[in-house]
Amino acid sequence: MDVSSAVTQIVVIGVGNDFRRDDGVGWAVVTYLAHRAARQPLPDGTRLIRTDGEPTRLISAWEDARLAIVVDAAHAHPARPGRVHRLRLDADLPQTPRSETNSHGFALGDTIRLARTLDRLPGELLVYAVEAADTSLGTGLSPQVAAAVGPLVQRVEDDIVWYVAAAR
C-alpha cells in the first residue's frame, strides 16, 4: 500500500472545554502536540483539531481520516484521576444509558454509534479516555490529570508512527 500525504490522513481530535477543569484534557493534549510538532513535525497529512464534542462537528472532523485519535475526559466510579484508557473502535462500545450524557451534552459512544449508522466513521478510530477528578467550572487541570498529559502525548505520537509504518 502506497502512503503519501494525499492518501494518509491522520487526525488527532481533542474533545473538551477549557472552562470545565479536567474536561480540558483533550485540548491540552492537542495543544502539547502542536507545540512539539513545531520542533519535530508530525507526518504529512496529520491534522490537530480541538472541538467541544458536539456530534456533527466531531463526525465532520474525522470522517475523511484514515486514522482518527480522539482524546476526551471520562468519568469513572470509582475514579482514578489521570488513568488513561485506550479503546479501539473494533472493540465493543459500552452501552450508554439513555439518561446519561457527558459534559458535552452527548456521550462519545453515542456519537460513534451515530457515525456508524450514517457510514461516516474514519478508517480506524482510537479513543483515549482520561479519568477526570474535577469537571466543575473553572480553568486548569487537576494535578493527576495534568501529569497524564505528557505521557499521553507520547502514546499518541507512538500510535501515529506505528500507523504510518504499518501503512507502508
Rank of each mutant, 00 (worst) to 15 (best):
P94W: 00
T51E: 01
A132T: 08
G123T: 03
R36W: 09
T46P: 04
V15L: 11
V25P: 00
A167W: 06
R113I: 09
M1T: 15
D18F: 07
H75F: 12
V15Y: 08
V25S: 07
D22R: 04
V7K: 13
V30C: 03
D52F: 05
A76N: 13
D159S: 10
I69G: 04
Y32P: 04
R83T: 07
P43I: 02
S60G: 04
S99P: 03
V149M: 09
A165W: 06
E131R: 00
A115C: 04
A34W: 05
D90W: 12
W62N: 06
H104M: 05
P43T: 13
E131W: 02
V29Y: 09
R50E: 15
R83L: 06
A148L: 00
T46G: 08
A133W: 07
T56M: 11
R57M: 00
P151F: 07
R98W: 08
P122A: 06
I59T: 11
L89R: 12
L87V: 06
D119H: 13
A73W: 03
Q40M: 12
A167G: 13
A115F: 02
R39I: 13
G26L: 10
D18K: 10
I59C: 05
G105H: 07
T135W: 04
D22I: 07
L93F: 05
T111R: 09
V12K: 05
L58Y: 02
W27S: 08
A74W: 02
L137Q: 14
N17L: 12
L33S: 10
H77W: 15
D23K: 04
T139D: 14
V153S: 01
